[in-house]
């Protein structure tokens, strides 16, 4: 905010103050959008504080009674803590591996010319348009067969899910990081090589530090992808490896839904990602600007 106060004293457009038609359009549109965005957030928060009778009857804008019971009950009604651990392990590991793999791949694409480069980038990007449903069953069969042949349990295990999710975020991550690396002057890593750095050292000494915003953006994206995925999680997990996505989905489709508890649980599982995202969002915008939008 302070930046706005003394940043650029006169913005380019200010010689002519915006007309009132523009100011009113801005007020109205932004107010409506704010309402639209906040509506479910308000419902989630207010309903999570209501006793069960109040969420089973007619909706009330202003809760008539407030309670914190739902927040205590969610841990008993379903094994939410177990789901939480599973989700954190799966999403965390998928993020770390995805970022590392993407850094290496983007370095190769950005700094080297080699045979098959175009084929690689086009193929990887085109996987983004595959309908998930097309490879759900084959992937399931591959994991089962690998398990039978080698004894490595990929189906139903966290490892299998980590492997799947880290690949899901890979195409976008490679694409974005390649753009980001391209925007870093080559002279920087050339200079490091003249100083005796090998290509890998140059990557970690020069490029990775310079590309930190892009790397943070990619990590946020990878974590959110893994944290929110439903389809593969619902097929590829069992009772002990179930993630939040599957657990909550089951919670909300029982016959008698405790809506106040479901809302409390939804809020609790959202807080880590939303807070993390909002703290890091400026990196995401910066990363998109340099990487994706060229």
């Amino acid at each position: 905010m302070s930046e706005a106060a003394h940043g650029r004293p006169s913005r380019p457009r200010s010689p002519m103050a915006p007309p009132r038609s523009f100011l009113w359009t801005r007020r109205i549109v932004l107010t409506l959008l704010t309402g639209f965005v906040l509506l479910p957030v308000y419902v989630m928060i207010s309903s999570s504080l209501k006793p069960l009778e109040d969420v089973s009857g007619k909706f009330e804008w202003i809760p008539s009674a407030l309670t914190l019971r739902p927040y205590a009950d969610i841990w008993e009604t379903i094994p939410l803590a177990d789901y939480f651990v599973n989700s954190i392990v799966v999403a965390g590991a998928a993020t770390v591996f995805s970022v590392v793999v993407a850094i290496f791949a983007a370095y190769a694409v950005s700094r080297y010319s080699f045979r098959g480069k175009r084929v690689f980038t086009v193929t990887v990007l085109s996987t983004q348009m595959f309908p998930g449903i097309l490879f759900l069953l084959p992937l399931f069969l591959i994991y089962v067969n690998i398990g039978n042949a080698t004894g490595i349990a990929l189906f139903g295990s966290r490892e299998g899910l980590i492997l799947t999710y880290l690949t899901f975020s890979l195409p976008f991550s490679i694409w974005m990081l390649t753009g980001y690396f391209d925007s870093i002057p080559r002279e920087l890593d050339e200079a490091a090589k003249v100083d005796g750095c090998g290509p890998i050292r140059a990557l970690f000494r020069v490029i990775v530090p310079a590309a930190r915003p892009g790397i943070v953006a990619v990590a946020v994206y990878a974590f959110m992808t893994a944290w929110g995925e439903v389809l593969f999680a619902s097929v590829m997990t069992n009772d002990t490896t179930r993630t939040l996505a599957v657990g909550l989905q089951g919670y909300s489709t029982q016959n008698d839904v405790y809506w106040n508890q479901v809302m409390a649980a939804s809020l609790v599982v959202s807080v880590p990602v939303v807070v993390g995202f909002l703290l890091l969002q400026r990196y995401l915008v910066a990363g998109l600007t340099a990487g994706a939008v060229k």
Binding site: T34, V37, V41, V43, G228, L244, A245, S266, F277
Partner: peptide, 28 residues
């Protein structure tokens, strides 16, 4: 920042909330 909240929320948490809002008898 506010406008990015729907993007940041996990899909299932957001959609479950909408499902509650669309309930016939006790929805908003």
């Amino acid at each position: 920042t506010l406008f990015l909240v729907p993007y940041a929320l996990p899909v299932y948490a957001a959609v479950i909330t909408w499902a509650f809002m669309f309930q016939r008898d006790n929805g908003l």
